[in-house]
């Protein structure tokens, strides 16, 4: 790779420019999908995939190092936290003597937002969201790393 820094993959100007503002947009959209999944099409899995693909796009355009920096958390931590959250969301039902994963709801009335329904289902969905981001990004980042190491060698 004639002396260029191996941490940055070659990518086109268009991709780099797009990567910059697509990332926050897609992450925001993924949050929208996550919360909308409550009553309408959407949900944790799809939202997680959208967010993960946003970061994958960012990795392709800006390189591995800056992607890791933007993500802040290690994907493995995301996976662990998400899985823990999803599993624990089933436990309150057990404590109330109902079967595991039975949905519990706590409607709240907030001053500005009106009625908000908090539920174990939401916790489960957020858990799934984090697991999907974590696992997809673990694979993508590992593959990108292997690719950069290969470039480094050649």
């Amino acid at each position: 790779m004639n002396g260029k820094s191996p941490t940055k993959m070659e990518s086109s100007l268009i991709l780099r420019a797009a990567g910059h503002f697509l990332l926050p947009l897609l992450v925001l959209f993924s949050l929208f999908l996550l919360l909308r999944g409550h009553n309408e099409p959407g949900g944790g899995f799809i939202a997680g995939l959208v967010a993960a693909s946003a970061f994958a796009l960012y990795t392709f355009s800006m390189g591995l190092k800056s992607a890791r920096k933007t993500l802040r958390a290690d994907p493995r931590d995301l996976m662990g936290a998400g899985l823990t959250l999803a599993l624990l969301s089933g436990v309150p039902a057990m404590l109330q003597g109902q079967p595991f994963l039975t949905a519990l709801w706590w409607p709240l009335t907030l001053p500005l937002l009106g009625e908000v329904k908090l539920s174990t289902v939401l916790a489960f969905d957020i858990g799934v969201y984090l697991v999907v981001i974590g696992s997809v990004l673990t694979i993508v980042l590992n593959l990108a790393e292997a690719e950069e190491n290969a470039e480094w060698k050649s």
Partner: peptide
Amino acid sequence: IVISFGVLAFAVVLIHRAYE
């Protein structure tokens, strides 16, 4: 589909490593 997505992503990593 979700499951096969996960499994096949793994298979791709596997053949990549195997090829190396």
